[in-house]
Amino acid sequence: MTRFRHRHLLGIEPLSREDVLAILDTADGLREVLDRPIKKVPALRGKTVVNLFYEASTRTRASFEVAEKVLSADSLTIATATSSVTKGETLLDTARNLEAMNPDMIVVRHASSGAPHFLARHCKSAIVNAGDGAHEHPTQALLDALTLRQKKGRLEGLTVAIVGDLLHSRVARSNLWLLTKLGASVRLCAPPTLVPPGLGALAPVTHDIDEAVRGADAIMMLRIQSERMAGGFVPSLREYHARYGLTAARMRHAKKDALIMHPGPMNRGVEIASEVADGPWSVILDQVTNGVAVRMAVLYLLLGGAPEASL
């Protein structure tokens, strides 16, 4: 039996090591369903999931939708750009109105940190955080860990470099929590303007990408978030590429079997050069496939058991 006693998935920080392993092991077991001739199992028949996306998304949204369909849950996706949110409806009103239609789960992405936690306090559905502001993106960290474990056979003892916009990145935060919980060591690399204060207390920070790359088992590149760049954090994208972009030349410092990861969407020629993104080190598309398996695991663990199973 899997011990996963949570009602919501709001972030990686509140999870125990065992919780994380329960999700990863379940995802490992479920991945095979995607290779079947009929990619559909009846596990969540009759469950309704609402995907409520207040921010743009391709991978995460598609991945949740595929996971929901494969497990036979009924799902509907609300992209707020085409919804009544544009008419001024608040997050809570939108959620309450959706709840009146009796969904079992709401998957939410929002630009404000803490939005899923707010919904969890006010709604009776299970809430899954699909990215909240610069706070957490738990399913991304889980799929990254699944990919790492699949390629390296373990997480414990690995050295993982996270390079890029640490200030705005929820992916970096979730990964930092997850990897340290599972016994990997993390090093962070970013220009000084893109390192939030206090982060150095959680993992070593360097401003030299060659130092970050050297000896790392995996390098996670973060996207330069141009939509959050109004503050002039980097002089220019060209300069950023020159100093912090991952290029084939820089990969000479890396371990031969180092893995390159990117949560997408990539800015080719900014944080990552095409020859690296498409090179032999890249596991970027494996990450996408594993994303579906991880989201299936989260749906299964939150919706599959009896209500008494959850706290």
């Binding site: 039996m1 899997t2 011990r3 996963f4 006693r5 092991d25 379940t26 490992d28 077991g29 479920l30 991945r31 095979e32 369903v33 079947r36 199992v41 009846p42 596990a43 469950k47 497990l71 695991a297 299964y300 663990l301 919706l303 599959g304 058991g305 009896a306 008494e308 199973a309």
Partner: peptide
């Protein structure tokens, strides 16, 4: 065959059965 995902009591048993996969 791992029949967990096809069980008729999946939403009434607690906690969730471990998924081992079908081959």
């Amino acid at each position: 065959l791992d029949i967990t995902l096809y069980r008729d009591d999946l939403t009434t048993i607690a906690p969730n059965p471990v998924i081992q996969g079908t081959e």
